[in-house]
């Protein structure tokens, strides 16, 4: 019938993500590149960007941080979501031995990449970090895909006690990876970028920003002279290193 701005999906299944939030499996596919995002509207509540966790069927993982994400995470099978997109530049699907590094809600933008890389017969190691084991995002999904998991928690309740960078360190120092892709808090991305300075292994970073249009028009998601929705959210490290915020 044409012209509709949103595609409407129904929630088919909801999977709790511990104390973090939930994953919603929807009733249809969405063709997307790994790392791209969609704008999700809940009428009467708000519209926000979310990473495409999986593409067929479309799945979204939501971390509860405010009223919108609380309402989204509370969706039950049968509930409807309004989706536009996908938008932005995603991760290149390259590398025979890929190291993915994720923290916070950013982890959801790495799962589709892991799936594509596994489909290409790549070896995928995934380093995940969180405060404690119940806040680790989507380890089940990476396990399901057959990735090798490297876990770290601040309190040592799962994996090694430390940061996600500690979990990734043995792979980094052994020169295991031929590509590294990361998404998470900017402090984490900056630390990873600094750790890999001088390395010739390509590093791609996915940035997170508050967005309004998602279309490269409003400028709300700027990072220096870049627009995260238009130029990103995934950037080769060289493009954004000088723009990342140093830790306070």
């Amino acid at each position: 019938m044409g012209e509709a701005i949103y595609r409407t999906y129904r929630v088919v299944a909801r999977r709790s993500e511990g104390s973090v939030g939930a994953t919603l499996i929807l009733d249809g596919p969405l063709q997307a590149e790994p790392g791209q995002f969609v704008m999700v509207w809940l009428p009467g509540i708000e519209e926000r960007p979310l990473a495409v966790m999986d593409d067929d069927p479309l799945a979204l993982t939501v971390r509860v941080v405010g009223p919108f994400t609380r309402a989204l995470a509370a969706c039950a099978p049968g509930d409807r979501l309004w989706v536009r997109g996908p938008y932005g530049r995603g991760f290149p699907v390259r590398g025979e031995q890929a190291l993915l590094v994720g923290g916070g809600s950013g982890v959801a933008s790495l799962t589709l990449l892991a799936k594509r890389l596994m489909q290409e017969n790549g070896h995928v190691r995934v380093a995940l970090g969180a405060r404690s084991s119940d806040q680790l995002m989507l380890p089940w999904r990476f396990r399901e895909l057959g990735c090798e998991l490297l876990l770290a928690t601040d309190d040592g309740s799962e994996g090694l006690r430390g940061t996600v960078l500690d979990a990734a360190e043995p792979s980094l120092s052994a020169g295991w990876a031929d590509v590294v892709c990361a998404c998470g808090p900017e402090v984490m991305l900056l630390a990873l970028a600094r750790r890999m300075e001088g390395s010739d292994v390509p590093l791609y970073l996915s940035l997170e920003r508050s967005m309004k249009c998602g279309l490269g028009i409003c400028g709300n998601c700027y990072c220096g002279n870049r627009l995260v929705c238009l130029d990103g959210p995934v950037f080769p490290v060289q493009e954004v290193l000088c723009l990342l915020e140093p830790p306070p």
């Binding site: 701005i5 704008m39 028009i217």
Partner: peptide
């Protein structure tokens, strides 16, 4: 972008949409 003396949050999203023949916005 237009600025006022005091800061303003603006409207909640959705605020900018692309439709068949252009944009509609209420930022």
């Amino acid at each position: 972008k237009s600025c006022s003396l005091a800061p303003r949050i603006g409207h909640p999203n959705p605020t900018v949409l692309h439709w068949g023949h252009g944009f509609i916005n209420a930022v």
